[in-house]
Simulated scan of single mutants.
Amino acid sequence: MILLGDADQIDADLARLRELLIPRLRANRADERDACAAALREQLFDPLDIRDRRVLIVAGGRLGLLPFQLLPLPGTGRLIDEYEISYLSAPRDLLRWTKPVRQRVAGPPLVIADPDYDLGSAAPSRAVRPLPGSAVEGREAAALLGTEAITGARAVKITLASVQSPLVVHLATHGFFMPSPEPPPLGDHYESVQVLHVPGEGDFVVGAERVRPPVQDSFGFAGSDPLLRSAVAFAGVNTWLSGSTPPVAAGIGLLTADEVCTLDLRDTRLVVLSACDTGLGEHRSDEGLVGLRWAFAVAGAQTLVSTLWQIPDRATADLMKEFYTHLTAGQSVPNALRTAQLTVRSRNPDPFAWAAFVTHGNPTTNLTQYRPISENPPT
């Protein structure tokens, strides 16, 4: 065991770093951002003296909100240049990959993108807004996976709920994590908040920019279960939020993390949550951050790619195209994500454009011919 220093100081540095990654605060402050990130590297990474290229991190508590790969190296570069980093929710996850498993065949990949949020509504709404890049992302990801993207009016919640263990699940839409009734930690503060009140579920924030501490009454959320405060949007969500009734297949247009836990993803190798804040959650002892990412793992997904802040639309489409290009060429999920992030970084070095994505789960997962895990243990 290695003592890493004062937790309060580490938390404060992490809060500051996350704030400096926000669009309206990061302008002309790259030096301050990198100085804060370097302080975190010195506290958290340097004392470990890690010399292996592949690194698995179990980041407890608030450290689950830190993408270690963006931390700057001494001199030039970042940790992503030297290490392939992936994450675990808990150390016991390692046991899942070394026990014998029954060989089964997964279903075809499932790509859902660019839902028609106004499905069933007589008038368009600006509550949950379309993401132009998600349509492009969905088409390109589906083409590389050898399938067709489900978009528009067909991108309803029941589409995911009714399938059994697709090989890959890719969701390109809006994602939400509603802060707890307590003051939100780590600089996740909002200005110009758009709050969507979901009857029976609470309030969700859409399209806000994290800039300053909020007035708590702006949220007005009474629930405490993080599984009900985490959701992804599907077709029809605007219709339901406006008080109208979406088509039956659309439900309410929101899939909560609580509902995700009931999905059958036991043979799904990869879930990509290409939406804002899908890696956030509430810390629970021995469980990590409980939210969407945690729920998809409970449903059985072997490996997950999720995000730690609100992601830019166009840059995300570029990153996902690179990711699936390398994944379908045989690279593992962590390696394909790292390669994609390095490529996008070469075009735009700002970490906001590429560093939000992290991978959790089995670091050996790939899309090549499946063999039982007992015959191919991780090194």
Rank of each mutant, 00 (worst) to 15 (best):
P363C: 07
S192W: 06
D8P: 00
G236I: 01
A301V: 12
Q331F: 13
E209V: 12
D8K: 14
A37D: 08
R229W: 13
G288L: 01
A233I: 02
D116L: 03
P214L: 15
P67F: 04
G223I: 06
R314G: 13
R41E: 10
W240K: 03
A315K: 11
D116V: 00
L160E: 06
L4H: 12
D203K: 07
A295D: 05
A222G: 14
D313Q: 10
R96A: 15
T328M: 15
A59H: 06
C276Y: 07
R314D: 15
R229I: 07
D11T: 08
L270K: 05
G61R: 09
V198S: 05
H283F: 14
L44N: 01
G236N: 01
L289E: 02
C36E: 07
L63F: 03
R212K: 12
G202E: 11
S346W: 05
T364C: 05
A231F: 10
P74H: 12
L3V: 12
D81I: 05
P179W: 09
A297G: 12
K157E: 15
G202Y: 09
D118T: 02
D118H: 02
T76I: 09
A12R: 10
T239P: 00
G75R: 09
S244W: 02
L144T: 09
Q69F: 05
A317Y: 01
R126L: 10
D225M: 11
L21H: 07
V168C: 11
G5T: 12
H283W: 14
R129N: 04
A15W: 00
E82S: 15
L337Q: 00
A39C: 12
